[in-house]
Structure formats: C-alpha cells, structure tokens
Design a protein around this nucleic acid. Sequence first.
DNA 1: AGTAATAGGTTTAGCGATTAACCTTTCTTA
DNA 2: TAAGAAAGGTTAATCGCTAAACCTATTACT
Lengths: 338, 338
Amino acid sequence: MNLKTIASLAGVSTATVSNVINGNFHKVSEETRLRVEKIIRDSNYKPNVMARSLAKKESHLIGVVVPYLDKTEDFLTNPYNAHIVAALERLVRRHDYYVMLRCVGDPREIIPLLSSWNVDGAFFLGVFKDEVREIRQTIDIPMVFIDTYAPGEKIVNVGIEDYRGGYLSAKYLIGKGHRKLALVTPPDAGEGVIRERQQGFLDACKESNIDFNLNRDSFSCVSTYRNAVEVGQDIVFSNRGYTAVATLSDIVAFGVIEGLVQCGIRVPHDISVIGFDNLPDCDFMTPKLTSIAQDYEWKAEKAGGFLFRMIDGERDLHVDERQPIRVMERQSVRDLTQ
Amino acid sequence: MNLKTIASLAGVSTATVSNVINGNFHKVSEETRLRVEKIIRDSNYKPNVMARSLAKKESHLIGVVVPYLDKTEDFLTNPYNAHIVAALERLVRRHDYYVMLRCVGDPREIIPLLSSWNVDGAFFLGVFKDEVREIRQTIDIPMVFIDTYAPGEKIVNVGIEDYRGGYLSAKYLIGKGHRKLALVTPPDAGEGVIRERQQGFLDACKESNIDFNLNRDSFSCVSTYRNAVEVGQDIVFSNRGYTAVATLSDIVAFGVIEGLVQCGIRVPHDISVIGFDNLPDCDFMTPKLTSIAQDYEWKAEKAGGFLFRMIDGERDLHVDERQPIRVMERQSVRDLTQ
DNA sequence: AGTAATAGGTTTAGCGATTAACCTTTCTTA
DNA sequence: TAAGAAAGGTTAATCGCTAAACCTATTACT
C-alpha cells in the first residue's frame, strides 16, 4: 500500500495525493481532496516515513543520548536520568517528533549514529567535558546539552545553578549548627558541574569559617547505590566526628544513609545527610531526605524550547541556561541550634 | 557526502561501494576493497539509514511502547517501567538495532506510528487487554508483549507468574501470623495480570481459612505514589484492625506506608506491608520493603530472544513465558508468630 | 477583446541507498 | 584448446515520496 496505489485508486497523480497528505490544499480542489482523503482512510494507508525523510531531508527524529557509568549499572537505573528522559520524550512527542533513545559509554560512539539517521536534533544528557568539542566538530545538527559544563564551546546548555547548589547545601547545614562536615563527591571532578558544586560548597564553608578541607573531608564515590553504602561506612570508620554529610546526588545519599545505619548510626540524630536532585524517592523513605531541588519538567521545557528554535532555523544559538534551585527541607538534617 | 561521491572518488561504481559496505567481499577484489574502505574512512562517510531502509525494506528500528496512566504521571516516573526500558534498550543495542521510544495513553495511537516507520519489531509494555487484538489485526510485524494477559490471542508474552505472586504474597503474610489482611489493587481489574494476582491472593487465603473478602478488604488505587498515600490513610480510617496490607506494586507500597505513617501507625510494628516488583528502591527506605521479586534483565533477555527470533524469520511464534518469582524478605513485615 | 493570473492538475527528476541482470577477463578442466 | 566457471566489475531499475517545472482551462482585469 503506497502513494501510487492510492493515486490510481483515486484516479489522480501521486503528486496530488502527496499534496493532500501534506496539506497543500491550494493545489487541490475540495472535491478531489475529499475523495482522496476517503480512500486514504478506507485503505488505512500510512505514508512511509523513510521515503518521506529521504525526499525531504528531514527525519522528525530526535536523538536522546544518555551516558552509562559501567556495564552493570544501567542509565535508567538512575532515577534522575529516567525522569529527564521521561520529560524529554513527552516534550518531543508534543512537537510531533520521535525519540530515538540511545545509551552510550563514550559519547563519541554516537556520532556515526546521529549522522546516518540524520536526526533533526539531539539531546545529550550528563557531563561530556572534552568530548563536547569533538561532537560539535563532527556533526552539525541542532543539539542541546543538559548538565554539561563546557565554557568556551558555543553550545546550548541547560543545567542548574551548580555552584549555588553546593553553596546552599553547605550553608543549610551550617545554618543548622553543623561544623564538622563531610562531602561525598564523584571521583575525578576535573572541570564540570561537579567541580562547580564542590567550589560552591568550599566557598560557603570558608565564608562561615568552617574548617573544611577537600582532601581530608571529602569522600570519593561513583553514583551508584552500592558504592555509596561502602562510603557511608567509610565515613563512620574515618572516625572524624562528622555531624553532617552532604552528597551531590540523591542516589548516593540513599546509599550513604544505609551505610551509616549499618554501622549503628542514627540519621539524623547522630549524623545528618543532605542529598541533591530531589527525586520523588526522597519522600519514600524514613527519614525523608532533605535535598537540593531541581525541576525536571522545567529543564526539559527549556531544553526543548531551544532545540526546536534551532530546528526552526535559528542556528548558532549559544546559551547556558541555569535553573534556579532551592533547598527542599525534609527530615534528614538535624537542627543542632536548638 | 553520499555513495556516489565515494564511488567517484574511488573510481568505481556505486554498486561496488555498496558491496564493500555491506561485506559482499566476494564481489570485490582485495585491492579495491582497501582503497574504497580508506576513502570511506578518510571522508568520514556514513551511509544514510533512511535510504538504506527504503531500499532494503527494513529499518533496524525497534519500537518500545510504554503506556502512561494520565497526563501528570509519567511512564518512566514509575521505576518499574524505567528498569524494563533500560534493560530493553541495552538488549536492542547489543543486537545493533535502534530503539524508538514512545509513550502512549491508548496503545491504538501507536499503530500509525509503527506502520509508517516500518519498524522491524516492537515491544509493548504493560497491560493492553483488549487492544491486543486490534493491534495484531492492524499491523503485522514481530512483536513481543510484556506483562500482558491475553489468552486466546496468538501472541508472544513475557511476564511473571502473576497468580503465584499473589498467592505467595498472601501465604507469606499468613505464615508470619497475620490473619486480618488488606489488599491494595488497581481499579478495574477485569481480566489481566492484576486479576491473576488477586486470584492467587484469594486462593491462598481460602486455603488457609483466612476470612478475606475482596469487596470488603480490598482498596482500589492507581499506581501512583500520591494516590497510594491516600489509600494508606483510608486503610487506617476503615478501622478494621488489619495487621498487614499487601500491594501489587512497590510504588504503591511506598505510598501506603507513607499514608500509614502519617496516621501515626508504625510499620511494621503496628501494620506490616508487602510490595510487588522488588525495585532497587526497596532497599533505600526504612523499613526496607519486603517485596515479590522479579528479574528485569531476565525479562528483557527473554523478550528480546523471542523478538529477534521472529525478526529472523520464525513467524507465528506463540508463547506465554512466565518468570518464576520469589518473596524477597526484608523488614516491612512483622513476624507475629514469635 | 486580449492578456494575465489562478485554479487544479500532471510529469518527471531527484533523495541515497540496494540488487538483479549483464558484461568482460582470466582461470579451469575435460 | 574450446567451453564453462569464477572473479570483479558496471548498469540501471527500484524502494516510496516530494517538489519543481510544466500544462490547460477558467476567471479576472483593464
């Protein structure tokens, strides 16, 4: 069942059918239009997207590229990624585009993919540091990065106020009377959003004259629950009298709490914990996790807004949009001032 | 940059280049092959998938169709869906296919999509009861349903032992000395996996002479955290002295616990709760949620195995594969027998 | 009335691959 | 040594759709 069949069924040319389908009504009389439409409906005909894309040189496909940490840990296993992907899918669907979902270890893998499918645009999740440049050089399609730190690169990035996130996290704990702070952070921060958060945290400590030393008081942890549990125990074994620990993702906070609890520590009575992301899961647990809140829907909306503006012709857009954040207060931080 | 360019650069015909790309080496001399390959590499050429698909009548695309409950609640918001999608994406990628992710309210929406993209196969997540038939009638591509109950339809379904799940859930609670049981279940069970789980639950109760009445002791709840919180409160307000409540999904169990706690109930001391799905999140909370365990990776592997067998020519496969399940014991059920 | 514009088409040349059919050489083999 | 097969290509049709160019009546305008 193809255009040609419909055309001959209706006794018109393929061009006419094509015009009907694509809404070029000024080239088709009301009468023919209705006839063709009826036949299309009756024969349950659906145009072949591949052929159309080939002819129009556009695919209506949007790539969504998500990183994974290692082979055992899945990308959507991290609820943060899952939420962002969900929000993006919804947004893309609303624009009548389609999502091609792809998970990658190294973002470079994605380049051949995107160019051969000639997707109309792509979202990149997660930090891709240096690879950003390589991606940009190799393919030239509208793309929006999410949570990527790449100053100097002329890209569109949508993230959060990372520096302020770290700053608020520390300030909040300090405000609750905590003076011995530990920070759990992904390894190998280098440059990037993690580095910004760390810096915010450091500056807040310095500002309040808190004796926090990154070498001594920070604990390295990949963003998996399992690893975080061990880190939680390490914190106890370190025996440094921390009263609060800050993490840079909720999933890590969950693990840390578990590790602490396994060592007989009560949260927040003995040690307080603050997360980062404000996942719905924060509400599921006891104590409910206090976290740095960001709005996924907002992020997706912003990112989508930029992407579709670029698709609509506005090339070389260059913005670094940061979502304002706030502390979402729950129960995992004890107030020592009272 | 297209086949033709490469061909003229290499001084051969497009057919030869095509043969090189597709590995039909017996039609190309070693020498030409190397020359062409070099040029392809140097010019960074990637074949256009749309054109290839059109010519070969296969897309290397796999549709992943996920239902959503309502407009506010996203499909990947439910970690269960997120995990399945993650496992499927990984599997599809391993087979060198691509995932087209689509979320739908009514699965019928998907029909035009699948036929116009002429995907090579599709996975359908979630219960699609009657729509199964309509889908099957309208499109004829390899497809595998996940967690779908449609006896009589010649489909491939991969699920779990739902009946046994409900049965085990009840038996476990009963074994721990509970006699006053409540069941939280999605509304409008009709036929389907939910109905099976209910039946298993009922039969287990009957077998142990437990006075459980579906009309009196079951609470209707859509699978969202928010609704589940209310239901948790309802259970308390019903004032029927339940000592344990079983749910048919973890996410609902999380909400129910929250609702109970909000009413001053201690879990599991006053009321025990058992979940269903065994999400990683079960470990994140206090008390850790006892749940009915299923293996996502297993499901994806099985489903993928079937789908690719069908794609490889084995049409009219018809199986209803059920994954064995077990109770994953944690801390949310109190043992009353001691 | 004569010309221009418009409405409503049709023809046909792509889009970028694949592939069947065909064409030379060169190598086997009876 | 003549016929057949194999190696290594090329040509051209085709996949299903789009869109520019072209055609032919009508209708509009001055």
